[in-house]
Write a protein that binds this DNA or RNA. Structure first.
Lengths: 222, 222
DNA sequence: AATAAAAGTTAGATTATTCTAATAAAAAAG
DNA sequence: CTTTTTTATTAGAATAATCTAACTTTTATT
């Protein structure tokens, strides 16, 4: 789905603030983007309907998997463009950001890849900021894809607030470590935590949970 | 004044068709831009109010001085961008046009100048099309700036249709050659044509007529 | 706890760009 | 010179992004 420039700017703003572990509320986005708060509310409504964002007053805004992927791509483009303007055209100063801010919305993924290759796949931009990879490297699995006995860290829970509350009660939250004790024929998963907590999730719920697989070497290291 | 992408696309479309000496009517622009004709009408209304365009059903659309300048700049950007993508990134094929079509609307004049210099001021794009200069080289004078005795070719008449009709009656039209016989203290000009036509224009009218100055050498050549 | 301040929300308006449907005017064809 | 076709135009609606004004809820301060 093709987003407008404004929609992309909101994704970026939300991503940046979420990255700083701040609660992403209406006011902060309104201030950052220099718009009135009702404008932010209507955009949040749009992004929620488009399943790019989850929002409620108490928890603030949180990008969904798709929303975060789009935001990451934009940040990546921004930083690659700045790098390009400096390395290839020899520019510096505020023009880097000014032009990148506009170019990031129109340069295609295909062209961006060419530019990335032309630059030799740089890892940081002219300001020393990291250029994020296209895909978050460690989080390509959902809980539904794991096999019996695999250990994992919870990376992202994308469930309703009711379901989340249930998870929280059992200590199943982002950053916690679990072991897939059993997966039944319907796809339901039974989980065991280090602290001997026990939890069951349906196949549908397991699909909406991203995990970071614990590899053998990581387990050895610990 | 900053134009939107849509507005710029109309200027470009009108410029291209005008350049091919076709009458620029609603239908042709609607077809080129793949929009419905009422859409073109409302955009023509906007561009007319912004003094970038003159339109009437019989003569079709004609860009004003300012409109033409903006269109020229866009075409220039488009062609410079295509050249850049080919020369610097080694790209070819439809991606050149596809990306240039988006980039031309967001790259600043300043960045464009840098790119132009980086490319060594190319004169043609990858398709062999001419990259127009920023300013039309020969038309920097209005009739109001000329001195007694100077010869010129009429380049652009930007008058009301009533005034234009009056000019036409005396053979004063774009492409015709004249001699400034006298300029009175109020700025009114008195003109003499090769075919012995005679015409008087007010100072205000003279300001809205662009001319190509006939230099000594050109006159000698003829 | 009562009040003040801040943040969130709803309602309604505006601008830009587009559409469809209906009508008017001009050009082409018979 | 009437009829048909094409082109232009008006009217009215939709979407995206924004605003202001008014109201509600939450948070902070006394």
């Amino acid at each position: 789905m093709k987003l407008t420039v404004a929609q992309e700017d909101y994704l970026k703003a939300i991503w940046k603030q979420g990255h700083n572990r701040r609660k992403v509320n209406i006011k902060r986005i309104a201030d950052e983007l220099q718009v009135a708060s009702p404008t932010v509310i209507s955009m949040f409504n749009f992004l929620s309907r488009a399943e790019l964002l989850q929002y409620n007053k108490t928890d603030g805004a949180r990008l969904t998997e798709r929303g975060e992927h789009m935001a990451r791509k934009l940040i990546r483009k921004h930083r690659l463009i700045e790098t390009f303007l400096e390395d290839v055209l020899g520019l510096s100063g505020p023009i880097l950001h000014r032009e990148a801010e506009k170019l990031e919305h129109v340069i295609s993924d295909q062209l961006m890849d060419h530019i990335d290759a032309h630059l030799g796949f740089p890892r940081t931009d002219p300001h020393g900021e990291e250029i994020p990879a296209l895909h978050h490297p460690l989080t390509k699995y959902t809980l539904a894809e794991l096999e019996n006995g695999q250990r994992f860290e919870v990376y992202r829970i994308e469930l309703s607030s009711g379901e989340k509350k249930y998870c929280k009660k059992y200590g199943f939250k982002e950053g916690s470590h679990w072991n897939l004790s059993e997966k039944d024929p319907t796809g339901s998963v039974f989980l065991l935590s280090d602290g001997s907590h026990y939890l069951a999730l349906s196949a549908g719920q397991a699909e909406r949970i991203r995990v970071i697989l614990q590899t053998r070497s990581e387990m050895d290291r610990a």
